[in-house]
């Protein structure tokens, strides 16, 4: 509880690096002096230059170029391009695979966000408790987040193979005599399989994120709540969940943005099939644009995709903040 005893004005003074005079007049800033002023601020901000440079060179400039190329017939092989206006955008909106890709991409992003969040929070609570071998269990839970998701996708093609020789089908057959199940050859089971592997590979990472926030909740809160007669579920609902709200915002934001940009897992696990059932927008960008050498079209796709991801992510962030404010 001591963390809330610092007065805000004192905190600001400490942050500015000025001497604190409790109860006295506000500290005076000296311009150009050794302890403050624009030179010092500029000195601090100079440390941002590498980051800003990287951001401009690797993000803003390519983004501007992409926007420019989206109005041209740039092939990637010659800089002699022609302005084609909105033609690239028109072709995208009449492409049937785009709609199929859009449907699965949104469904995947929402499903993985919901399932991972629902599993990662209780998992983090469980991992926060003391038990024998806790460190080992934490490592095992976190491990699937380490290997490349593309490699995991290839491995899971053997596990989820719809043939009788598939690993999971063999296990089910040995245990129950049922199957084989068409995990990757039935459209709905294929969609579910992609979500399953995504959840398996990321739930540990997000549980660790929640765990970090859980460990910052003072134990005093729970002690007081216990004395007041609050049950475990009440403590979770009224203490843990509100104080995890910032973590939920961060976790769901990351899950949504990464879910909308997903490419490697569905591509390696199902190749986008059966049919278009697990086809993603990014796969469409790569196939229609980059692989085909139609960079103008790919750029238009990327621009629309960036705007869509930005809009969805911003909405989700605002919504999360509102919920966060409400439950706190």
């Amino acid at each position: 509880m001591s963390s809330t005893s610092v007065r805000p004005d004192v905190g600001r003074a400490v942050q500015a690096g000025s001497p604190v005079v409790p109860g006295g007049a506000p500290p005076v800033r000296r311009r150009g002096g050794p302890q403050g002023g624009w030179k010092q601020v500029a000195g601090y901000q100079a440390f941002l230059l590498p980051v800003v440079a990287v951001f401009v060179v690797l993000f803003l400039v390519p983004l501007a170029q992409t926007f420019y190329y989206s109005f041209t017939d740039f092939s990637g092989y010659s800089l002699d391009t022609e302005f084609v206006g909105l033609e690239n955008y028109g072709r995208i909106l009449t492409d049937p695979s785009m709609l199929a890709g859009l449907g699965f991409t949104i469904g995947f992003a929402v499903a993985q966000t919901a399932v991972i969040t629902a599993l990662a929070i209780p998992l983090a609570v469980a991992l926060d408790r003391a038990f024998a071998g806790r460190s080992l269990v934490r490592s095992l839970v976190f491990f699937p987040a380490i290997p490349s998701i593309a490699v995991l996708g290839l491995v899971w093609t053997y596990i989820l193979s719809p043939l009788g020789s598939g690993v999971l089908n063999q296990v089910i057959d040995a245990l129950t005599g049922l199957g084989p199940f068409p995990f990757l050859s039935d459209p709905w089971m294929a969609r579910g399989s992609v979500v399953l592997v995504a959840v398996w590979s990321q739930v540990g990472w997000h549980a660790v994120l929640y765990l970090a926030y859980l460990q910052s909740i003072p134990a005093d809160y729970y002690e007081v709540a216990t004395i007041d007669g609050a049950s475990r579920p009440q403590q979770f609902r009224l203490i843990t969940l509100p104080l995890l709200a910032p973590a939920i915002t961060i976790s769901t934001f990351l899950l949504m943005t990464n879910g909308l940009k997903v490419y490697d897992l569905p591509f390696t696990l199902t190749g986008g099939g059966p049919g278009y059932s697990t086809f993603t927008l990014t796969q469409s960008i790569i196939t229609s644009g980059v692989a085909q050498g139609e960079y103008g079209r790919a750029s238009a796709l990327a621009v629309l995709f960036t705007l869509a991801v930005g809009a969805v992510s911003l909405s989700q962030l605002l919504w999360s903040r509102r919920i966060e404010g409400r439950i706190r």
Binding site: T157, L163, T270, G273
Partner: peptide, 13 residues
């Protein structure tokens, strides 16, 4: 189920 297997899996069969 051939729509859900890889070329390698088909060859292995």
């Amino acid at each position: 189920d051939a729509v859900g297997i890889t070329g390698d899996q088909g060859r292995d069969e």
